[in-house]
Design a protein around this nucleic acid. Structure first.
Lengths: 252, 252
DNA sequence: GTTGACTCTCACGTAACGGCAGGCAGGAGC
DNA sequence: GCTCCTGCCTGCCGTTACGTGAGAGTCAAC
């Protein structure tokens, strides 16, 4: 029924130092001490620790946790609501960043130059109406910028060569199929859509069907990506778009 | 073409102190100084800052950012890949936490007691196989635990009364409809499903159709929630489940 | 020539601990 | 009774990425 710091630390998955800290700041003081000064935690202390860890995990600062737990009049539902909002915002932010990274990786793969606005847009710290015009000049198409961008989109030499080879091989095959008149939802073409996905997964990131269809949409929506594929063969962007969607549906 | 700290701070959305700090640690030193010692940033500095902020936003520590930016041999694609993985993990974690909070809020709304395992399961710091048996005892159904839980699920008095009233009113109406033999996908019943969603949105959190169908599934999957509705009227849990799904589909 | 806004360099403060040092405490084995 | 080992104690400094002044110099305007 009574536990030492070490025991508590072990079962709660925290360090002894953390418990010392919580004692120091008065967040969780053990209910007693031995004659030698050893901290003694009882069940009630453990329950309080449970609460503390719960709120901590939810992102509350320790001081606020103290207030929440010690104030019997506080409304826990309000805290949950607030925390739910915070989490939702953070979640949305993260999702945007994941999308932005996927976008950047695709662009990097195809050697497409991102505009500075695109690089910045993921963290919307800017007030566009105030700086838009200036920004154009400031971040504009200087040679230095282009050079830095070129360097930034450079791959490890060996990997790059292999990626390029695989990609071109894949490109030749899908162009051939398109030229042969195979419909975009035919098994052979869908198989190449699947290969496209696996190519991304192998070299860049785990690409789900959902993510791949997102990319396919982007290939049509963003003219630079469209141009990349149209440059390989006229109509390829739309063809690939359809094939990816067909493949995703058939695998679902 | 040359900017002072204040100007850079303003356009980049950071504080002057931050720029000072970046100068101190050598992450971003302005290309020049005026005779009076004022920092002078040029376009190249701004571009470097842009990169810094980009990586910072992606969660890299400043020291690592220095290494990334200063090492021309580094593979930026590898960093992007790594960061994509990190973000994906964080995203998943956040999603779990949001789900856990929604679960907790629903439970709190219905005065359902969460088991300690459920409270803890969102942060999996425990090795269950080692402590499961002990945990049972330690966190078990003591009166103190129940009492603390009761207090933790208490609402602000006025709000609580209104929520309860609205909820019971809604309950009476759906029970009446079910008793009248109205099918779960009839317009009237779906309207009540819609009201259920709005009730949650108004008092707890913005509840999308997707989230509501998730709740509906839980009402059937978790016997404590099932019991809550079956206690109001036999068959209500399944009836509401069907109505919510029907409503969600029709609104999509 | 003076005001007010801006800048400079120390330099300490913050959150939530990590990680030492130096020194007791307590049980096991001899 | 002595030693050994492990665990516990209290300081106290270190960390990250800055915040927040203090005190002093600088710049452009009125």
């Amino acid at each position: 029924m009574a536990y030492t710091v070490g025991q508590v630390a072990k079962v709660a998955g925290v360090t002894v130092r953390t418990l010392h800290h919580y004692d120091e700041i008065g967040l969780l003081s053990p209910s007693g001490r031995t004659s030698a000064g050893y901290r003694r935690y009882d069940d009630a202390d453990l329950q309080r620790l449970q609460l503390v860890l719960y709120y901590r995990e939810l992102g509350f600062p320790l001081e606020e946790i103290t207030a929440i737990i010690d104030d019997p009049a506080a409304d826990p539902a309000a805290h949950l609501r607030r925390q739910h909002e915070l989490l939702t915002v953070r979640l949305k932010r993260l999702q945007e960043m994941v999308t932005a990274i996927e976008f950047a990786m695709e662009a990097s793969k195809m050697n497409i130059q991102l505009t500075p606005e695109e690089r910045f847009e993921v963290f919307g710290d800017f007030s566009p109406e105030e700086h838009e015009a200036e920004a154009e000049q400031r971040w504009g198409d200087t040679d230095a910028y282009r050079e830095s961008n070129r360097r930034a989109s450079r791959y490890g030499k060996d990997d790059w060569l292999r990626i390029k080879a695989e990609n071109e091989d894949w490109g030749r095959r899908i162009v051939a199929l398109m030229a042969s008149g195979a419909s975009a939802d035919s098994p052979e073409v869908m198989e190449l859509a699947e290969e496209h996905r696996q190519l991304i997964s192998r070299w860049f990131y785990e690409c789900s069907y959902e993510m791949q269809t997102g990319l396919a949409d982007m290939y049509l929506a963003d003219e630079r990506f469209t141009a990349y594929y149209e440059n390989i063969a006229v109509g390829l962007a739309a063809y690939l778009h359809e094939a990816i969607h067909a493949n995703a549906i058939s695998r679902a």
